[in-house]
Design a protein around this nucleic acid. Sequence first.
RNA 1: GCCGGAGUGGUGGAAUUUGGUAGACACAGAGGACUUAAAAUCCUCUGGCCCGCAAGGGCCGUACCGGUUCAAUUCCGGUCUCCGGUACCA
Length: 818
Amino acid sequence: MIDSKITDGYHAPMKKYPFTAIEKKWQEYWQDNKTFRVTEDSTIPREKRVYVLDMFPYPSSAGLHVGHPEGYTATDIYCRYLRMKGYHVLHPMGFDSFGLPAENYALKTGTHPRISTEKNILLFEKQIKALGFSYDWDRNISTHTPEYYRWTQWIFLKLWEKGLAYEAEMPINWCTNCLTGLANEEVRDGLCERCNSPVERKNIRQWVLKITAYADRLLADLDKLDWSESLKLMQRNWIGRSEGANVIFPLADGKGEIEVYTTRPDTLFGATYMVLAPEHALVSELVTAERKEEVEAYIRKASRKSDMERTELAKEKTGVFTGGYAINPVNKEKIPVWISDYILISYGTGAIMAVPAHDQRDFEFAVEFDLPIVQVVSSDGELEEPKEATTADGIAINSGQFNGLTTAEFKVKMIEWLKENNLGRSAINYKLRDWIFSRQRYWGEPIPLVHCSSCGIVPVPYEELPLLLPEVESYKPTGTGESPLAQKEEWVNTSCPKCGGKAKRETNTMPQWAGSCWYYLRYLDPGNDRQFAGRNKIDYWMPVDLYVGGAEHAVLHLLYSRFWHKVLYDFGLVNTDEPFMRLINQGMILGEGGVKMSKSLGNVINPDEIIEKHGADSMRLYEMFMGPLEVSKPWSTRGITGIKRFLERVWRLAQWELCEDEPPRELLVLLHETIKKIGHDTEHIEFNTAIAQMMIFTGELYKADKLYRRLWEPFVLLLAPYAPHLAEELWQQLGHSSSVSKEIYPEFNEALTVREVTTLVFQINGKIRARADVQTGLAEEAMEKIALEQPRIKELLTERKIVKIITVPDKLVNIVVR
RNA sequence: GCCGGAGUGGUGGAAUUUGGUAGACACAGAGGACUUAAAAUCCUCUGGCCCGCAAGGGCCGUACCGGUUCAAUUCCGGUCUCCGGUACCA
């Protein structure tokens, strides 16, 4: 009995596809029966265990948007497929529930972030469950719970223990709106990646993680990973390894030296001046009395510039002469030392040798301040008119005994020469900076350290974790570099775990990335209160076989968690040095018309409405049918009706009376082709074409006058990973009492995928002139014979001479004529 | 600027694997069947141009220009556009 509400208001009788009722029924069934719970069954061999992971969401108040289900549906289909293929699949879900939005909401309304966060989690859970994903909900975690962040703090202390966490007073990226420091990775075009407010330089006390200590391994181990090349490249670029040399330039007055880093030691003879970063320690020593005022003014101005201003002003070079000179070690020339803000204190040695002939920035600077330009690399050994810097490799000129060497040879020779003369050595540099880890905000993990006036910084003992986030009166960021926790005196004032004397707690909190650095490990053993995860569980499941999520985390989460994982690996706490073996970035779902979906454009699609109107199975299928998972594609309200029609058609077909006879061979061949195609496409995460094949198959079944059980049962199994609710219902209708998700995936018979008849194409000089249906498996001679018998071909061959005949079995015959 | 990726009908997209029938499957559109009518459903057509009453046939066509090949969406060289990343990293 189906009421009109369930049938979506259509008046069709009884048989209308009752998706709402079906979906509710099976979601309850899966929940009540814990259908997708998975345990560490030791009888299952290693190669049959698979860990498939989704990037867990931040539970925002807006609820799920259509982008979330895209990746989740993809992994769900893949997991359901693997289970039917006999794999033991770990597929968990949780929430990344510390973060600024909840705190900002608290500021506005006074609602405790925990309250709003937990409310949002319930909303997310409900929405995710409404899509019928096969998660093992018993492993659900949320990063803001003390049971979870106890271990986030524990791992932080391990980092501290290893000397990988240090305190520094340094100029950092300060978001003027969030009122907190940011990591380099969180700044985009001089703006905060979260709120797009300008980022300024601010000198405050920070906790910093020494990710640079792992730069070489983070770079090298990318080669092991099955990630897209473009994503690996993004990480490579971010790490930014370069090879070159450090070179020592003695000061002209004999009282010291300047060390520079260069990737082009072969251009040393062309170094006509030097530039220091304004913050460089030697500036104050170098500056002459008469230039002092000008230099100090420049330093002041540079320090006030925000990142935005620095990039905007990048077109014109600025700087001042310090009055000091250094000696170019290769030719003993006395060269002036300048300062300029195009030299960054944080990269290399904070100082450069300027080779204006072969570096565009140095060239611009030299032109601006009328400094000499000496060409030392030439494409042909001849001198050229310097119109701009030539950065290409070439032949050395103006370089004394090194003249005539190629750039590559010269680099090697020069480094040898520098070493012999104690003037330098080869060096490697990275763009990657250490990770600024502290946030001056409330809603995050408290950093479990204590400042003791006699013992210094002392960690909270492991057994006292979690260090609970205290309740506070106000969540308002102080803006002074202290977090709101600082106001909570009874919390801040504590005793030193070491000497028992008076001490103060660290009041900074961790960034949102902390919790997501290791959540994939907690899923393995979510209830463990003695360890972050039991080693046996880690060995059982890790590493993650497939990880799916958005590309926006390319250099944030994915770099940070690789770093933490390597640290844990070095402690012997995990079994692999990389966490995520294969990674797929799903494309963005755009609004209709191909523009970005946004609240301001009013084109946001709400999954709840889609589910209510078309059903979860339609939603799942549509998102997969739109196109390849990895590419961005626009939502189409009309597109989903096509998918809905397909499922309605499947439902109608299911109402036909079953026929137990042997189906006609043609349909049997189509079935086996379909099993082959859908199996292949599902395995390779090419869901759009798999769905197209289902449509072809049902289209043909519709043309038959009977519904053959031997065709229909395998089809329902093929459908099951994609439209699991409908498939469960149909499976039950077919008389089965267990869940379709526990069935074995159908196998195809290769012999039955071979068609008996195929269309041969006949070409003359590569142009198609005729076609004919023939039996498959014809010999080449037979194909040629048929080709030459075609009336149209005969006609076109008169008066022509056949040069050559090319045949491709079961495909074509191409006759080359003159 | 540099580094990636991508450009296929009115639209989303197919063409597995090493080159072999371009446009699968859908959406939209047109026509038809059923119906008192509508909705739903079912069937047919649907890249462009041209010849033909028709059956049928021809030419062009995968961003653009060129190359390799019997044959190019696919391989090679160049140009343009869009998207993503990055931005004084010496």
